[in-house]
Nucleic acid binder design. Structure first.
Length: 888
RNA sequence: GGGCGAAUAGCUCAGCGGUUCAGAGCGCCUGCCUUACACGCAGGAAGUCGGGGGUUCGAAUCCCUCUUCGCCCACCA
């Protein structure tokens, strides 16, 4: 009698939350006290973030890995947390207060920062709570935030150490400036985008020249107001006469020198270039070389402003409005030679998408070369591995050409830069503790107003989260970590820098493998984003299909490192497969559980050789699945692991084994006991193998298996062990023949439209004696699966019916008196014969090809010979059938 | 301008040198509510593996080239 009443459909919502609670209560996600550690640090989401599909993929991937290793007995630590995300978070709160009609300047620094904290306290755990919904098995007791006091100490320590090592310096140069966020950005934070723009050719009047003007080409005419020279290449004959002359800067109407500089490419534009040292990085270099003035002609928010260079008509205009107006003025004055369409790159702020303005300013930089060297070496020596490997080239290229890192941001939200200046004696230094007075002269001190780049704190994540610079037990135990899982989009921002920080400050790699999955995109291969409205809310998916369905699609839907393509307009197609599979699993469980006694005898208590073929076969298949799934997991081929489980559960266990043993189970006799034992064992193994991918439903079912202790959890149960000596290809082949017989009969049934309820009579003629024994032993299985009322072997009287012939020449006859259409049967069989003959012909050609026989490996040749023999038998059998039917 | 990736069934993708290798899921067609499951069962149809060339006894699978998409990097304004 059934021990459980389970509904016929799996209801994820009824089980997910309680199970998660149970895992938490049991401390299942805390690393076990003993055992070799396995550590994944979670890429910390922005503290204001809500879960999107990209993170969903990232997190589920990590969860699969951590659950797998946890089951394998490792002291598995998945360390969660959030990032304060300087610009992003400040923007969010600025928008909030904008609704009250205020700016951060109205509030003042202190109040604004307090406001951000209030917001973070209120909403900062949202995304972490969402992770629980999708089943993330992180150790919440070790949750970190990049602005935690301990973490901040690490950030400050790192800054001071780099300062002491002379790797931090103040740079006066042209950096990327976001006029909307009002801060400088690193090179990485200014994303390039190709646009269809224009190239403006502008005439700069020249008094003493042979020609009345020199023409320059530019994509940003508005910067003309900041020009302090015109430059040409020193080797450019065309302009030799101009060098040393003075041009008249249009609109501003001031003299500027025409000079020669190597940086100018003669082939581009006119070969003459306007030089705007304060608003262009190359021009800045030219300016330095020629000691040019470097006037800023724009405000921080991108409006034109300069006491002498910006005329009233242009003052205060936004840079793009100013561009149009300046072009108009130039046109009016005949100074605009031409305008060409021109495809070029602009840089955009990665947080707000504004076009970034190159701007001369003072910023703090980190010298990166010394940091990059060990990180590069670690990759080259294989100490750190990138998966997929192809990212190695990108990583190397970036490291080899690394540029100094601008780490100061003109924001209020973040780690304040610990550089202090004495108001009295100008002494400047970095300090671990806030100083009360200047250590040199005792004068009052001022702290640098800027904060650090967010990534300057997150690059310490693998060890700052473990208590560094304190020598904590966690740090000793869990550093270095093992696997980092992330998307390739933050390879430079984060991954590369973590590696550098690890070697610099811990003298050891932060992790051994970086696994980079792909990006989540829609069916048009566009990245999912809020602005495109093509996103999928993972929580919607959980609501509609359950967390396991979401996880299934995220894992089974992508191969190693490839993008995940999802259709936001068709969630059903996208996520139903996972739900359906969960439901299938549920119902297999429902059936098996209804059949199992308490307790179930262990499989080991049965003599292997006495188990029926089907039992030995499914046990072997289970074992094979264990081997394959384990191997796939180890290689990050998570999709293969998931699909292998699917095949075993659905294709082998449900479609064949469960159906095959139903009669035995129904008999309730001694035959049933073995079947029960085998079912229990196989199902248990399947649940274990599937648990990392679909933790909820597997735990729920596993709990119901007989013999479960009250406090046992699948989440911390051992991973099944693969037994290489149980692999048996012969066994598989034998059962394959059984399957083929069944399928042959089913196919005949369908072709002759025999109603499912009609029981047929069939006769098998086996090719070899062994095979006959197999068929006889599995007679009941075949009868049931093929819906037969009678199955006989060999010899019976010739009757009218249909035949199917198999690879080894065995054949099955299905009696179809009255129903048989001889013509049709002839066509069917001769079709098969033709196909077989063609195959044989090809094979024969291959085998008579001396080149093949001589050069191909002997075992391949032998295999082909064997194949030929079997096919000949099959052909013979088919030909006989045709003859006996009287086909012409 | 460099570098990388992708192109296989209507859709999303596996397969990446040799077992009937041309596959899976979804979709489609034909039967079935066969007492675990219609989120299911059984049986089918469906692709000259982007084009061309080459290497090899043998090529979706390796090499070259072209085409089309996508991504990353680069101070020719």
């Amino acid at each position: 009698m059934p021990r459980f009443e389970l509904s016929s459909q799996y209801d994820p919502h009824a089980v997910e939350r309680p199970l998660y609670e149970r895992w938490l209560d049991a401390g299942a996600f805390t690393p076990r006290a003993d055992g070799k550690p396995y550590v994944i640090v979670m890429p910390p989401p922005n503290v204001t973030a809500v879960l999107h599909m990209g993170q969903g993929l990232d997190m589920v991937t990590q969860d699969v890995l951590i659950r797998f290793e946890r089951m394998r007995g490792r002291a598995a630590l998945w360390l969660p947390g959030t990032d304060h995300a300087g610009i992003a978070t400040q923007n969010v709160v600025e928008r909030l207060i904008a609704k009250e009609g205020k700016t951060r300047f109205d509030l003042g620094r202190e109040q604004f920062v307090e406001r951000v904290w209030a917001f973070v306290r209120e909403t900062g755990t949202t995304i972490l709570e969402q992770l629980k919904i999708i089943g993330a098995s992180c150790d919440w007791s070790r949750r970190r935030f990049t602005l935690d006091p301990e973490y901040s100490r690490a950030v400050r320590e790192v800054f001071v150490r780099l300062w002491e090592d002379k790797l931090i310096y103040r740079g006066h140069r042209v950096i990327h400036w976001c006029p909307r966020c009002l801060t400088s950005l690193s090179d990485e934070e200014a994303e390039s985008e190709e646009i269809d723009g224009k190239l403006y050719y502008i005439r700069y009047p020249v008094k003493e020249g042979r020609k009345p003007y020199i023409t320059v080409a530019t994509t940003r005419p508005e910067t003309l107001l900041g020009d302090t020279a015109v430059a040409v290449n020193p080797n450019d004959e065309r302009y030799r006469a101009f060098v040393g002359k003075v041009a008249r800067l249009p609109i501003v109407d001031i003299p500027i020198p025409i000079l020669a500089d190597q940086a100018v490419v003669p082939e581009f534009g006119t070969g003459a270039v306007k030089v705007t040292p304060a608003h262009d990085a190359t021009d800045f270099e030219i300016g330095l070389r020629h000691k040019l003035e470097m006037p800023l002609v724009m405000t921080e928010d991108g409006r034109m402003e300069h006491p002498t260079r910006v005329p009233k008509a242009l003052a205060d205009l936004d840079r793009f409005d100013a561009r149009e107006k300046i072009v108009d003025i130039l046109k009016e004055r005949g100074l605009l030679e031409k305008v060409e369409p021109y495809r070029h790159v602009v840089r955009r702020c990665y947080r707000c998408d504004s076009v970034v303005e190159p701007r001369l300013s003072d910023q703090w930089f980190v010298k990166m070369k010394p940091l990059a060297e060990p990180a590069l070496e670690a990759y080259r020596s294989g100490e750190i591995r990138l998966v997929p490997e192809r990212w190695g080239a990108t990583y190397q290229h970036w490291m080899e050409n690394i540029r100094d890192w601008n780490i100061s941001r003109q924001l209020w939200w973040g780690h304040r830069i610990p550089v202090f200046t004495c108001v009295k004696c100008d002494h400047e230094w970095a300090a671990r503790e806030d100083p009360a007075a200047c250590p040199k002269c005792g004068g009052p001190v001022q702290q640098d107003p800027d904060v650090l780049d967010t990534w300057f704190s997150s690059w310490l994540w693998p060890f700052a989260t473990l208590g560094w610079p304190q020598e904590t037990p966690d740090l000793q135990r869990f550093y270095p970590g093992h696997t980092l899982v992330t998307g390739p989009d933050i390879l430079f921002f984060w991954v590369a820098r973590m590696i550098m920080a690890g070697y610099r400050f811990l003298k050891d790699e932060p992790f051994e493998t970086v696994y980079m999955h792909g990006i989540v995109r829609d069916t048009q291969h566009r990245k999912m984003s809020k602005s495109l409205g093509n996103g999928i809310d993972p929580l919607d998916v959980v609501r509609l299909y359950g967390a396991d369905a979401l996880r299934w699609t995220a894992i089974a839907g992508v191969s190693l490192g490839s993008d995940l393509i999802l259709d936001p307009k068709d969630l059903e197609t996208t996520f139903a497969p996972g739900r359906n599979f969960a439901n299938k699993l549920w119902n297999i469980g429902r059936f098996i559980l209804s059949q199992l006694p308490e307790p179930v005898q262990p499989v080991e208590s049965f003599e292997w050789s006495e188990l029926p073929l089907a039992d030995r076969w499914i046990l072997m298949r289970a074992n094979e699945a264990v081997g394959a799934v384990t191997a796939s997991m180890e290689q990050f081929r998570l999709d293969e692991a998931a699909k292998r489980c699917y095949e075993f559960v659905w294709g082998d266990l449900a479609d064949w084994y469960v159906e095959a043993v139903k009669p035995r189970l129904a008999s309730r006799g001694s035959d049933a006991a073995a079947a029960q034992a085998v079912l229990a064992q196989c199902f248990d193994a399947a649940l274990r193998l599937l648990h990392p991918v679909v933790p909820f439903i597997t735990e729920e079912l596993w709990q119901k298996l007989p013999g479960r202790a009250a406090n046992e959890l699948l989440a911390v149960a051992p991973w099944p062990a693969f037994q290489p000596d149980c692999v048996d290809a012969e066994l598989d082949l034998q059962f394959l023949r059984v399957k083929q017989v069944v399928e042959g009969i089913r196919s005949i049934r369908a072709q002759y439209n025999v109603p499912p309820k009609t029981r047929l009579r069939a006769r098998i003629t086996a090719r070899g004696r062994d095979q006959r024994k197999v068929f006889e032993a599995e007679r009941e299985t075949i009868q049931r699966l093929a819906q037969l009322e009678d199955l006989s072997f060999d010899g019976g009287a010739k009757r009218v019916g249909a035949y199917a012939v198999f690879g080894d020449g065995s054949e099955v006859f299905v009696a179809l008196e009255g129903a048989i259409d001889v013509q049709h049967e002839c066509r069917r069989l001769s079709g098969e014969l033709t196909r077989l003959e063609q195959q044989l012909e090809r094979l024969a050609a291959k085998l008579t090809n001396q080149q093949f026989v001589a050069r191909a490996p002997a075992e391949v040749v032998a295999g082909e010979r064997e194949k030929e023999r079997a096919w000949r038998d099959q052909r013979q059998a088919l030909a006989d059938k045709l003859k006996s039917l009287g086909c012409s």
